[in-house]
Amino acid sequence: MKTSDFPRALAAIAFGFAASLAAAQAWPAKPITLVVPFPPGGSSDALARAITTPLSQSLGQPVIVESKPGAGATVGADYVAKAKPDGYTLLMGAVHHTIATSVYRKLPYDFEKSFAPISTVALVPNVLVVNAKSPATDVKSLVALAKSSHDKLSYGSNGNGTVQHLIGTQFSGIAGAELLHVPYKGSAPLTTDLLGGQVDMSFDTLTPLLQHIKAGKLRALAVTTAKRSTTLPDVPTLAEAGFKDFNQGTWFGILAPAATPPEVIARLNAEIVKIIQSPEFRKRMEEIGAEPVGDTPERMAAQIKEDTAKYARLIKDAKVSIE
């Protein structure tokens, strides 16, 4: 480069930086879409709606929840992965996506590389529930029923490759009782069939089940996390019921497509964490049985990396695979 070209090059760099900064400062200039990869009625939908109303107010633009269910939450994830990385299309991701990485042999995206984490929103315990009419009153009697039943007892999940699917597989293996897996597109249709007796049990997250447990229509036998839920303090853990070291729960968090400007990620993180730390949001989490988190993009990325490796080992041992 000639010496005389330096000022021109510097001017071009400065112009590009100024344009990028101006674009970041102008964001958001239009509505934002938060994609929920499950149908309405589940934990991800409830958490998304708890976040979007205050987020719309803080950003000064509507934040719209859009459901894109299918294939164990991978359809919605793929949609967001391929969206323009401008901060206007976000994903309500979950631990399910770290599992799908190993369960599905061919995914059109890489969960660790295709997304920019923003913040984990909440942790929700999973609960082993049966219809209130079931003869199983605790985990021990459920296992005995499963072993003695002429037909396999069935358990529903939010889809192949979800944490509920994997919990069911682990439970079946440890109990020594083969169960029939029935995948659904989300919690709402699963809960409907559970209430109607079309499926025998589920290991779904607490949020969509809580009202039915309180109403006496479903019976909670155990939570799958290491400690008891503060919402259901009288319900034992699976570990307490004899399933040693059993510890599975579901986290939900917000992500953007990879290459989204860091200024936008930082702004979203700041606003979302502020909402999560608010008394109003925490009260809402208590109502739906969730534990608020609110962490940094770096910490969320580390969690995704840890869970991807952990579930890869569990899935290999369980020999779970989907084309």
Rank of each mutant, 00 (worst) to 15 (best):
G93W: 09
A94Y: 15
A94D: 11
V95Q: 14
V95L: 15
V95H: 09
V95W: 07
H96D: 15
H96W: 09
H97S: 13
H97V: 00
T98M: 13
T98N: 12
T98K: 04
T98F: 03
T98G: 12
T98Q: 15
T98Y: 03
T98P: 13
T98I: 08
I99Q: 06
I99M: 08
I99V: 10
T101F: 08
T101A: 15
S102Y: 06
S102A: 15
S102Q: 11
S102D: 09
V103G: 09
V103W: 11
V103M: 04
V103C: 06
Y104G: 08
Y104I: 03
Y104E: 02
Y104H: 09
R105V: 04
R105L: 08
K106N: 12
L107F: 08
P108A: 12
P108Y: 06
P108M: 11
P108T: 05
D110A: 07
F111H: 10
F111D: 10
K113E: 13
K113L: 08
K113D: 11
S114P: 13
S114C: 14
S114Y: 12
F115Q: 00
F115N: 00
A116S: 15
A116F: 03
A116Q: 15
A116W: 07
P117W: 06
I118H: 04
I118V: 14
I118W: 00
I118E: 01
S119L: 01
S119Q: 10
S119K: 10
S119I: 07
S119Y: 09
T120I: 08
T120G: 03
T120Q: 11
V121Q: 04
V121P: 03
V121L: 03
A122D: 06
A122I: 05
A122H: 02
L123T: 12
L123H: 14
V124F: 05
V124W: 06
P125Q: 06
P125W: 03
P125M: 06
N126H: 13
N126E: 15
N126C: 13
V127E: 09
V127C: 07
L128H: 10
L128K: 05
L128A: 11
V129E: 13
N131T: 02
N131I: 00
N131H: 11
A132T: 04
A132K: 05
A132C: 04
A132P: 00
K133L: 05
K133A: 14
K133S: 14
S134A: 13
S134I: 01
S134C: 11
S134E: 01
P135A: 10
P135D: 11
A136V: 11
A136S: 13
A136L: 11
T137A: 09
T137G: 12
T137N: 13
T137S: 14
T137M: 03
T137P: 00
D138R: 08
D138K: 09
V139R: 07
K140D: 10
K140G: 05
S141W: 14
S141N: 06
L142W: 13
L142A: 08
L142I: 02
V143G: 10
V143L: 08
V143M: 07
A144F: 00
A144G: 01
A144L: 02
L145M: 04
K147S: 14
K147Q: 15
S148Y: 05
S148I: 02
S149R: 10
S149V: 09
H150F: 11
K152P: 05
L153C: 02
L153Q: 05
S154E: 09
S154H: 06
S154Y: 04
Y155R: 02
G156V: 04
S157N: 13
S157H: 06
N158C: 11
N158E: 14
G159A: 01
G159H: 06
G159N: 04
